[in-house]
Every structure is written in structure tokens, then in C-alpha cells.
Design a protein around this nucleic acid. Structure first.
Lengths: 204, 204
DNA sequence: CATGAATGAATGAATCGTCACTCAGTGACG
DNA sequence: CGTCACTGAGTGACGATTCATTCATTCATG
């Protein structure tokens, strides 16, 4: 049918990254309709491939969602690790992580929606995903906080796990609200306010 | 089939509250399987009524979810309002609200799952619901915070809306983590830690 | 080179199970 | 009897997944 231009598109940008195209398309579709309301056919159309092609790259619709999460979470954690490895002050480390957190989500609204909304939409996903990436991220925050306690900049009587959750929760809420909000503001600067309150609250 | 005892049950406790029974059953079913994986037939079975009966009380499956939210949110906000009306210190007001927040969720794990997980599972729901209840709840936190700024106990340079979000996000994360966690701890005491850090962070 | 056999990526119509919702009926009660 | 709350088998639509088929590409061969 409308196949004349397809070949060119194919050879220009998709040799080998058809999988990535499908992932990008799926992120968009999931973000707009929600995971359960998204048809595989919708994803295929958005990615400009046939329905069946999706199954050459992914075992199931669910695996697509998993892949979106896995890929981005791995990237984020790696980026976070790198970012803080030459820093000394734990407070500064946390500031950087927070900024990166909101920066990444703020840079791609569709991805943010999938992370803040769609991934939360089932206990099953929550448990699977939390086991994988969220837990690791929380652990990064916790370890950094503990380091701060050791160095003496954070109150020693606080439970580091809880402190990590407070920080994560606050950032998470910034992101969720940003998505829902109709107003159009930058997400990443919110990190400063959050860190101001948080660091003030936990400093020795 | 197993209908012998049904009539008695019916007349003992359900005259007029069959609707409530269905809501309670639905909360349990949604919490265990997720909204989209729950069949109306599951809810009916759990409520010990026929599939069709569900439709005598609710227009659709979606309306059941709405009703769960509306009812509980209204109750919570009312309870919160009452709780703080005779208090003066805005810090104490926030402490009480936070405690109530986690107390209510901690008292009913199924309800907590629906609130923390299922209700978040689609942008559509998020927007509808946020317009209604969440926004009102956030507004309650914000107004209380502003009061504290006026009285001079909270730092005046902080944006009250953001402060409210930080507090809400932190509490929300406590609840979400409590649900996911396999360990068995009390949710409500977490409010103290959160408020300790938060109040410390925002106090003038 | 030209040929055509082999490959496997890509297609999209068809399949098949699953549910939300309907409605014709049942029986309890006054 | 009439009413009415309730029942649950049936229906229609939908959508994830499959698979027979197409076709571009590669490459061994003459």
C-alpha cells in the first residue's frame, strides 16, 4: 500500500534500531492512553510497523513496558553513580542526584508519565519493578545519607532508610504533580526547594 | 447452589447496604488483582451477589472505583477538618493530619493498595481524581502551612504549595513502601519521623 | 555479471479467548 | 397476583497473539 517511502525511512534510521523505535512509540502510546487502554496495534501504528513486527522484538505487550523501565532505570542509575563519584560532600551528592532525577523526568514528559503513572498501576508491576530498580535507587540515596551521618553532617539519630524514602517521596511527588499540572513550568528547579527543606531538616 | 444461608445473611446485614458490601468486596478484589485484571464477576462473587446485581448499584466497573475513592476521600477530609479545628499551633495541626493520613491507610491494607496503586494507574484517573479529592487535600496542607508562615513558625520565603507537596510526597511514599514491603510494621508511627524532618526543615 | 535459490524480516488478516454488560426469568413478599 | 430485588446464562465486542504469505537481500554458481 503506502510503501514507497518506507524503504528509505528504513535504511535511513532504522537498521537495527527498530526495537528502539518500538520502545519510543510505546512510551508515547502508553503515556497518552495508559498501559491497559493501549492496543498493541496502536503501538505498531505509532512505530510505523506491522502488528506482527512488534512480536519479533518483544515477547508480549507486558515485556514492552518492562523494557522501557529496565532500560531507563539502568541508564539513570549509571548516570547518577558517575555524577557523584568525584564528589565529597554527601549533601552535594544528594543535591546532584535530586537534580538529575527531576532533570531526566522533566526532559521527556511521555517517559515521565510512564514512570510516574503507568508503572505504578498494578501491585504486580510495583513488586516486580521495585525489586529491580526502585530498590536500587532508594539504596543509593540511603547509602549516601549514611555516609553523611558518618561524616557528621546529618543527624545520627535518624533512620537512614526512612530519610531516603522521605527524599524520594518528595521528589516523586514533584514529578507526579508536574505531569498532572496544566501549567507549564520547569521541573528540575524544584529539586533546589526540595533539597533546601530536606537538608535543613536532616542536618546535624 | 449454596443458597441456604444467603437469605438470613441478607436480612441480617444487607438491607440497604448491599451497595456497601459490593464496595468493600471490590476494594479487596482490586487490591489483590489490580483494577484492570479484576473481573466484575470476581467482585460479584466476593460480595456474594450475582453479576447482574452489581449493575443495580453501579453503572459500570469504573464507577465502582470512583465510588471507592469519593467515599473514602470525603470521609478523610472531613475527619481531618474536624481533627484540627480546635488546634492553634499549625505545626501540631500538620502533625495530626499526617498521623491521620497514615493511620487511615495503615488500618486497611486493601484500601491502601487501591489508593496508592490502583488509583494511580492511568493518567485519566489521575486527572479526574486529582481534580476532585487530591487537590482538596493538598489545599488543606497548603493552607495550614500558610497559616504557619503568617504566625511566624514557618520560613516565610518558602513556597507553600511546594512545601505541601513535599509533605504529601513524603507521607505518600511511606504508604507506598509499606504496601510493597514484605515486612510487617506499623505505618502510622512513620508520621512522626516524617514530621520531625519536615518541621525541622521548614521552621523559621 | 546474471541468475535464482535460500533466507528471514516484515506484514496484517484471522483466530480465539475473555469480559463487561444485558435481559428474560425466578421467587419472596404483601 | 403484582411488584421488585435479585439472578446468571448469554451476547457482542474487543484486542492480544499467531502464522501463512510476501518480498528485499544475499550469495553460490555458471
Amino acid at each position: 500500500m503506502a510503501r514507497p517511502s518506507k524503504k528509505r525511512v528504513s535504511s535511513r534510521n532504522s537498521i537495527g534500531d527498530k526495537r528502539a523505535m518500538i520502545l519510543r512509540a510505546a512510551t508515547r502510546v502508553f503515556a497518552r492512553n495508559g498501559y491497559f487502554n493501549s492496543k498493541v496495534a496502536d503501538i505498531a501504528r505509532a512505530a510505523e510497523v506491522a502488528d506482527g513486527t512488534v512480536y519479533l522484538y518483544f515477547k508480549s505487550k507486558e515485556e514492552i513496558l518492562h523494557s522501557i523501565f529496565d532500560q531507563n532505570m539502568a541508564e539513570a542509575i549509571a548516570a547518577g553513580g558517575q555524577l557523584i563519584e568525584n564528589l565529597d560532600d554527601p549533601r552535594e551528592k544528594l543535591r546532584r542526584i535530586a537534580k538529575l532525577h527531576l532533570e531526566r523526568l522533566g526532559a521527556d514528559r511521555d517517559l515521565a508519565v510512564v514512570f510516574q503513572v503507568e508503572l505504578r498501576g498494578s501491585t504486580k508491576f510495583m513488586e516486580e519493578f521495585s525489586a529491580a530498580g526502585f530498590a536500587e535507587y532508594l539504596a543509593l540515596l540511603r547509602r549516601t545519607f549514611e555516609e553523611g551521618q558518618r561524616v557528621g553532617v546529618f543527624r545520627k539519630e535518624l533512620n537512614a532508610t526512612v530519610a531516603a524514602k522521605i527524599l524520594f517521596g518528595a521528589l516523586d511527588e514533584m514529578a507526579t504533580n508536574w505531569i498532572i499540572s496544566k501549567r507549564n513550568y520547569k521541573l528540575e528547579p524544584m529539586a533546589d526547594v526540595v533539597m533546601d527543606v530536606f537538608l535543613n531538616g536532616v542536618s546535624a
